[in-house]
């Protein structure tokens, strides 16, 4: 956390909906914050009495605003504790560390038209992406599903800034957002999804069925994909000749880090590829959305944050 983090102060907290709060962060030393690209997120490091809470949140403001950053968080009772802590304990004046902006969900450069699909809190990356495109005069449309107008964070903001581009779908009003919206789009359209894993799967499959090239389909996950139980397995590290037990319920990355192995990582949900390592032997149970089908089949690399051994053990080039 030395040179690559920035100390910030919570300057303002705003209720965006009954379940969503936004937080305005300014640099603790008063200097300006780095500009970023639409779709970027920051990692927040909050020191609590239960330990360090490390979470990723999309930046929601215009990417050229350098006086402050804004993130928006939905309080989730099923969460691992991050969103509850942010909602119930963080107050104005609190200090924390954040990473520099990182972008694992960038806008396509070559797209002729951008179509965004947000479900619930999945709206957050699109707020900055829309600002980015609007400024550059690029064409886009935003489809946003929420239970109701009252539970729809940033509803008034979107309606006033992007009235022509934004389309709302409130399930209480029986208006459903559907994959058919991707059907009749011009050639060169890129589609982007952010929401639950089930929503992303449904939209990605539909886009493929409609004939979108794989490179025109973009999505960002908030939680690791669910591929079933996390069974125990063993890894052998080829360089140090160590054998490590990855316990049931633990990830390989966690195991490597607790044994002080210098393993790279970033998103921890199988989306960015930072933790990729070479595998010399063993059958891999790939659980990421990063590697291509060919790479998965070849079985020479794996992402340690989510993927596991099919059975027995793996030999890693570490």
């Amino acid at each position: 956390m030395a040179t690559s983090t920035i100390e910030v102060v919570v300057e303002e907290i705003k209720r965006e909906s009954p379940t969503v709060k936004s937080f305005k962060l300014v640099a603790a030393n008063g200097s300006s914050l780095p500009r970023f690209s639409g779709g970027s997120h920051i990692t927040t490091y909050v020191q609590t009495e239960y330990g360090l809470i490390e979470r990723h949140y999309s930046l929601t403001t215009d990417p050229d605003i350098t006086d402050y950053y804004q993130i928006a968080i939905r309080r989730s009772d099923q969460s691992r504790g991050g969103s509850i802590y942010w909602h119930d304990h963080i107050k104005i004046g609190d200090k924390l560390y954040i990473s520099y902006p990182k972008n694992h969900f960038p806008l396509s450069f070559r797209a002729k038209h951008h179509v965004f699909f947000a479900a619930g809190i999945g709206i957050t990356p699109f707020l900055a992406m829309a600002a980015d495109l609007k400024k550059k005069g690029k064409s886009f449309e935003l489809h946003y599903a929420a239970p109701s107008k009252e539970l729809c964070a940033f509803h008034d903001f979107l309606l006033s800034i992007y009235p022509d581009e934004t389309h709302f779908y409130f399930s209480k009003e029986k208006r459903k957002m559907t994959t058919d919206l991707m059907k009749n789009q011009p050639i060169g359209t890129h589609v982007y999804f952010c929401g639950t894993e089930a929503m992303i799967r449904e939209y990605a499959e539909a886009a493929k069925a409609f004939g979108y090239p794989e490179k025109s389909i973009h999505f960002e996950l908030f939680t690791p994909p669910d591929f079933g139980p996390l069974q125990a397995f063993q890894v052998k590290l080829n360089k140090s000749n160590q054998v490590l037990d990855v316990q049931e319920g633990k990830t390989l990355l966690e195991t490597l880090l607790t044994h002080n192995i210098q393993a790279p990582y970033s998103c921890k949900i199988g989306g960015c590829g930072s933790c990729q390592v070479n595998v010399l032997k063993g059958e891999i149970d790939h659980r990421d959305f990063y590697l291509s089908d060919t790479e998965k089949k070849e079985g020479n690399v794996m992402l340690t944050c989510v993927s596991r051994a099919k059975s027995g053990y793996l030999i890693l080039d570490l």
Binding site: S4, S99, Y100, K102, S266, C272, G273, Q276
Partner: peptide, 11 residues
């Protein structure tokens, strides 16, 4: 190239 694609701001 894959390493460069992932280098991060601040590092």
């Amino acid at each position: 190239r894959n390493f460069l694609l992932r280098i991060e701001a601040g590092k």
